[in-house]
Amino acid sequence: MKPTASKRAPHPDLIAGIAIMAVSGFLLLRTPDMPTMSSVLPITMLIGLIGLAALLILRVFVAHRSERMKAPRHRIFDSRPRFLGIIASIGLYVGSVSLIGFYTTTAVMVPIVAWCFGYRDIKRLLLADLIFTGGLAVIFVLLMGQDLPTEFFIR
């Protein structure tokens, strides 16, 4: 981890704590219309989460000043562009599965994604793709008779 980055960016625990408090708070607002017995445990859990998140945030500030408290700073991303790329490809994949069908999408996307993320041996890539997609088709169509999102060309 670069020391310069740690000075500039806010502590990850801080962001996590704030996010947890925000979400728990929002969910807490959805609770009052429930009967008492139904809402006791969820409210306890949500308040617990908010309290713990507050402690987490507090810990970051205390650790900032005193040497004895520690709030370990963990690195989130190995590579931020790659992470965003992965999230984008998963999103694209899921969207495309429901639009143009499972097998087509898988056969096209798996080699492209693997290529983009660093595996450049085209011949083996295509072979692996064939075995993988074919294997899935054998398992799900022939053996299990399970319907996956249907292909656009047989709908």
Binding site: W115, G118, L148
Partner: peptide
């Protein structure tokens, strides 16, 4: 290879959950 394994696992879990 890791990129291939990653792509396979993501596909597999999607099918499984679906």
């Amino acid at each position: 290879p890791r990129p291939l394994l990653g792509a396979f696992i993501i596909t597999l879990v999607l099918v499984g959950v679906y």
